[in-house]
C-alpha cells in the first residue's frame, strides 16, 4: 500500500487519457486533444509522455525510460523512479526486456517487438506550427490535407543548403493521410517508425495532444523525387563499442576541441561491449 493511486493519476483522468489513446489509434497520425494534467515535474520534462505511460502501465509491466538514448540521464532516472514509486512496476535498462518504453527523442537501436509499447515525449506536436502559428489554420490544413507549406519548407532547405537540412523532427506522412511530427528524434530514426511491430504512442503535455501509430502503419518521410529522404548520422564509429551503424553523440572532451563519438543508445553500446566489441577509445 502506498499513498498514491496506481500509476499516480486518478481513475477519471486515466479514463479520459485512455479514450484519447483509442481515438488516436483509430485515426493514425491525427492529434487528439486531451485535458492534460499538472504533473509533479515541469512542462518540457515529459509530462505528456508520463501521462500516456501512466494510463498505459499495468502492474506486470517492465518499464524502460530513455532520454536521447540514455538510461542514466536526469530526466530518464527521475521518470523511472517516479513509476517505481507510484506504480511499483519493475524497471530495466535493457530494451529487449522492457514491455513499455518511454522515450525522449530516440528510438532504441534494438528492434522493437509486438509485445512492446513505445511512448514518446513530444514538445510541439503540430508539424506545421513553425510555419503557421494559428491552431485554427493548422486544423484546417489537416482537414484539407493541405500540406503544400511543408513541402515549400523542405524546398527552401534545398534552395538554401543544397539538400534537405532538417535533421530532427523530420515530418512524416502517416497512412497516406496525416502529416505528423515524429517528435524531435533524429531523422536517422525515421525509417524505424514505419511498419514497426510495436504500438507507438505520442504524448504532448503542455500542448495537450495525444497521437499514435498502430503497429505496421505505413509512415513515409516527406521528400522529393530528385532529393530523396536520407537518414543520416555522424560518419564515424562508436569510440567505445566500435559500432559504425548506430546513431552517435558527439562528445567534446577538452578545451582544445578534441572530440569523440559514442553511441547515443547506452543500452545498445553496453550490450555490445559486454559481448566483446571494442572501439578505439575503449579503456
Amino acid at each position: 500500500m502506498t499513498d498514491y493511486n496506481f500509476a499516480y493519476l486518478d481513475e477519471q483522468t486515466k479514463r479520459m487519457i485512455r479514450r484519447a489513446i483509442l481515438k488516436a489509434l483509430a485515426i493514425p497520425g491525427y492529434q487528439v486533444p486531451f485535458a492534460s494534467r499538472e504533473m509533479p515535474m515541469p512542462y518540457g520534462w515529459g509530462t505528456g509522455g508520463v501521462q500516456v505511460t501512466a494510463a498505459t502501465l499495468t502492474p506486470g509491466d517492465r518499464l524502460k525510460v530513455i532520454d536521447q538514448g540514455a538510461d542514466d540521464t536526469t530526466n530518464a532516472v527521475s521518470i523511472r523512479k517516479f513509476f517505481e514509486r507510484t506504480a511499483q512496476v519493475a524497471t530495466t535498462t535493457r530494451t529487449a526486456e522492457a514491455s513499455v518504453i518511454q522515450t525522449r527523442h530516440r528510438i532504441p537501436e534494438t528492434p522493437l517487438t509486438a509485445e512492446q509499447v513505445l511512448v514518446y515525449q513530444v514538445p510541439i506536436p503540430e508539424p506545421l506550427r513553425f510555419l503557421e502559428p494559428s491552431e485554427v489554420e493548422t486544423r484546417k490544413m489537416h482537414e484539407l490535407s493541405d500540406y503544400g507549406l511543408m513541402h515549400v519548407k523542405l524546398y527552401e532547405d534545398i534552395a538554401r543548403h543544397g539538400h534537405i537540412a532538417t535533421a530532427y523532427a523530420y515530418p512524416v506522412l502517416v497512412a497516406d493521410r496525416y502529416v505528423m511530427d515524429p517528435s524531435p528524434i533524429p531523422k536517422f530514426d525515421n525509417p524505424k517508425l514505419s511498419n514497426c511491430p510495436a504500438i507507438q504512442l505520442f504524448g504532448a503535455g503542455r500542448e495537450q495532444r495525444i497521437y499514435a501509430l498502430p503497429p505496421h502503419t505505413k509512415v513515409v518521410s516527406l521528400d522529393f523525387e530528385d532529393h530523396p529522404f536520407e537518414p543520416s548520422k555522424a560518419d564515424a564509429a562508436c569510440a567505445l563499442c566500435g559500432d559504425d551503424a548506430s546513431y552517435l553523440d558527439e562528445v567534446i572532451t577538452d578545451d582544445a576541441g578534441t572530440r569523440m563519438f559514442v553511441c547515443s543508445d547506452t543500452d545498445h553500446c553496453s550490450a555490445r561491449r559486454d559481448a566483446g566489441h571494442c572501439g578505439e577509445d575503449a579503456a
Binding site: 481513475e11 485512455r18 498505459t56 502501465l57 504500438i199 498502430p214
Partner: peptide
C-alpha cells in the same frame, strides 16, 4: 481492484484497437 483491473483491461482494449 479498480485501478489495476482497469489498467489490465485497457491494455487489452488498446491492443485490440491497435490490431
Amino acid at each position: 481492484d479498480a485501478p489495476r483491473d482497469a489498467a489490465q483491461a485497457f491494455r487489452a482494449c488498446m491492443s485490440a484497437m491497435a490490431r
